[in-house]
Design a protein around this nucleic acid. Structure first.
Lengths: 160, 160
DNA sequence: AAAGATATTGACTGTATTTTGCAATATATC
DNA sequence: GATATATTGCAAAATACAGTCAATATCTTT
């Protein structure tokens, strides 16, 4: 077992989570979670997940992938990201928080398409302010910032 | 002409904008922009825009609506909003800014579905910080905050 | 460990939004 | 007003995703 490999314990947690919710532990569900879990920070489409899982379980159907994504999303194990490219993307939610503390902050480079994640507490300040001024209680958010990343800016300046 | 009715001049601007980009001024395009322009803050789906325009121009096709939306979006006259409810929504971009100052901030009530818009300069602070720490230059953003609005919170407390 | 109850799967079909090909038509230019 | 070209409207296709249902795998109970 490699050092830092937290799969077995998180897999156990996953199995328990399924059972606690009256859901069955199937090889397909475990396989799909593994695909997502082994690619933290990656934003996979249903089709991409399907392709990866197929390598191990060629008989799996795409419908199962969609259904499992729904299950994983309901259990808050994965986060949804919509980049408006016609695909909904998913990534593992390592935090495994219950509620009120999701952090999907994404920097999307308009030049190379790279997606950077970032953490920030400024949003919390903003959310508090919204609660105070408008009486709106924020429980989740999706923040997408579009722009030009460091690398692409460097490339551009070299081209001049 | 009603006071405060800025349609004629913005319509002229629109026509010029089309011409400047080698596009033709058609009744359909003007009609679709009018629908969006007369409903600021509303988040209309393509189907809804289609229905409104149809009242004046019953012969218009849905394909034209989709194509015009694309044109208007390219010209930065309208903003896209995806609420993950299966529809992509559009609203007029009154600012008509060139770049680097779009403001799509939306509060989405998970209970009643109402969408509230808000303006905030805290995002700008955040964006500056991102630029300084990560070298990522933000030029646009989409911020969606999900939660419970004042009205729905009041209703809930009454039900207890 | 075997059997029964039930959730889940996979193939297929269905749904709904959005896109595209093309002939007809409207717009801008001379 | 005639010509060139962009645009429209219709129909059909493409696409992501959801629903149906018999077959199958999983969990529980003996």
């Amino acid at each position: 077992m490699k050092i830092g490999d937290d799969m077995p314990e998180s897999q156990e947690q996953f199995k328990n989570l399924l059972k606690q919710n009256g859901l069955k532990v199937t090889t397909q569900r475990v396989a799909i979670l593994e695909v997502l879990n082994s690619r933290p920070g990656k934003h996979l489409t249903a089709e991409e997940i399907y392709d990866y899982v197929k390598k191990k379980y060629p008989d799996i159907g795409i419908a199962t992938v969609y259904r499992t994504i729904q299950v994983l999303s309901d259990l808050n194990l994965i986060d949804k990201l919509n980049l408006d490219d016609g695909y909904v993307r998913y990534e593992i939610n390592k935090g495994n928080q219950k509620e009120a503390c999701h952090h999907h902050h994404h920097l999307i480079c308009l030049d190379c398409g790279t997606i950077y994640a970032f953490q920030d507490d400024l949003l919390e300040t903003l959310e508090e302010r919204i609660n105070e001024t408008m009486g709106f209680q924020v429980v989740d958010h999706e923040v997408k910032l579009y722009g030009h990343c460091k690398k692409c800016k460097a490339k551009k300046s070299m081209m001049i």
